[in-house]
């Protein structure tokens, strides 16, 4: 941190990186789950729709034929489920998913 004059230039200079707010997936109460049987690009097996990717505030959904959600950071707002024209995304309670995982 020392510059050529020996003055330690401590100042608030931040560097870009993910997860400044931690694993924001832990904020989630409801988890968006994509039904690939209904999802337009997955069903047609070609680039289409991608509205979940477009509207996701946190950019945690991939723009891919089988869209994937990064649950590490997905805050669970549910905009994707609300905007999905095919009704392919359902919001599932995290407690249910956790209990299923326990079994």
């Amino acid at each position: 941190m020392n510059d050529k004059n020996g003055f330690a230039l401590k100042k608030s200079h931040s560097e870009p990186g993910p997860g400044d707010g931690g694993r924001t997936g832990s904020w989630r109460v409801l988890r968006p789950v994509i039904d690939l049987e209904k999802c337009t690009p997955a069903k047609k097996n070609k680039d289409a729709c991608f509205l979940c990717w477009l509207y996701c505030p946190d950019g945690v959904i991939t723009k891919s034929i089988r869209p994937e959600i990064d649950y590490e950071y997905c805050k669970g707002c549910g905009i994707c489920a609300e905007e999905c024209p095919a009704g392919a995304i359902t919001m599932v309670e995290e407690t249910i998913i956790i209990m299923q995982g326990d079994q």
Partner: peptide, 17 residues
């Protein structure tokens, strides 16, 4: 070389990237 200057600091120290 993107940096974000004078961002909010917390009362305690934090690890960087």
């Amino acid at each position: 070389c993107p940096k974000n200057l004078n961002t909010v600091t917390l009362p305690d120290i934090r690890p960087d990237i």
